[in-house]
Amino acid sequence: MVSGLINANPILYEKKERRARSAPSVADEYAVEPIDQQEIFDHIRDIKDPEHPYSLEELKVITEDAIEVDDQHSYVRVTFTPTVEHCSMATIIGLCLRVKLMRSLPSRYKVDIKVAPGSHATEAAVNKQLNDKERVAAALENPNLVDMVDECLAPSFN
């Protein structure tokens, strides 16, 4: 572990206002509300940054626009932007995003997690690591990593 913080002084952005959903019409009990961008964003916006007490939203690591979702084809892609190019926490953040979505979405979904192009020094390596099932499973066998992930996810469950 590095002793100092990787990005000691991150820029903070304002949280987006929580949009209230228009109340589902009472008239139709059987209407379907598909999973959309905003819902995915609500799942992950409160994940805590591994090294700061701020949420990924506040650090603008993720934005609503960086989420692609296709409910019909059960596909979601989240593109995140690490705060600094050499951020070694990028993989942890990616892992958090993946775990959170795995726990929150129906099993039919395929989840892709990507680092935003040009935002990281070892972009390809990180992307590969995050989307390799075996490596993700192996990472989740590591109790230290799991603790870390759980800690980051905790605020997003409230």
């Binding site: 589902p24 059987y30 209407a31 379907v32 999973i35 819902e39 929150s104 979405l105 099993s107 039919r108």
Partner: peptide, 9 residues
């Protein structure tokens, strides 16, 4: 998790 309604999900 795969419910048709958001509140339920």
């Amino acid at each position: 998790l795969d419910d048709s309604r958001r509140a339920v999900r």
